[in-house]
Design a protein around this nucleic acid. Sequence first.
DNA 1: GCCAACGTTGGC
DNA 2: GCCAACGTTGGC
Length: 139
Amino acid sequence: MSYLLVKSEPGSWSWDQQVAAGAKGTAWTGVRNHTAKQNLMKMKKGDRAFFYHSGEGKEIVGVAEIVKEAYPDPSDAEGKFVQVDVIPVEPVKTPVTLATIKGTPALKSMKLVKLSRLSVSPVSADEWRTIAKMTGIKA
DNA sequence: GCCAACGTTGGC
DNA sequence: GCCAACGTTGGC
């Protein structure tokens, strides 16, 4: 199993909306960046992703799971980009902010920090465990 | 095929 | 609201 971090502006798609959508899953769509696309393509069913709020909050607020692997994004007329379907798994007990991540030696080299504009980024198993501990969820 | 100009994203 | 980082576009 691999781990990811997906990023969204809560103003356009928030964790609360993801939770409200429930177990039927929703498409993680609108990705228009080739690096992010590569990361989407690597996702497998059952993989876990941290759900991060950019702009408002700048913190990890929940855990999502991939329920459908990459398939063509219908909102892309060219048909070059893909989307995956995700469901909410659980909210975090304690949100982990970007400031905290930057201040944590084990996490400062995260892609989230290095490539702040990337909307879908990989998370290593070590990083996942560290953040899981900080948020109070089970890894 | 190179590179400057421009647009977009996201942190501050 | 500003600026840095990065992707994309278009002229050559």
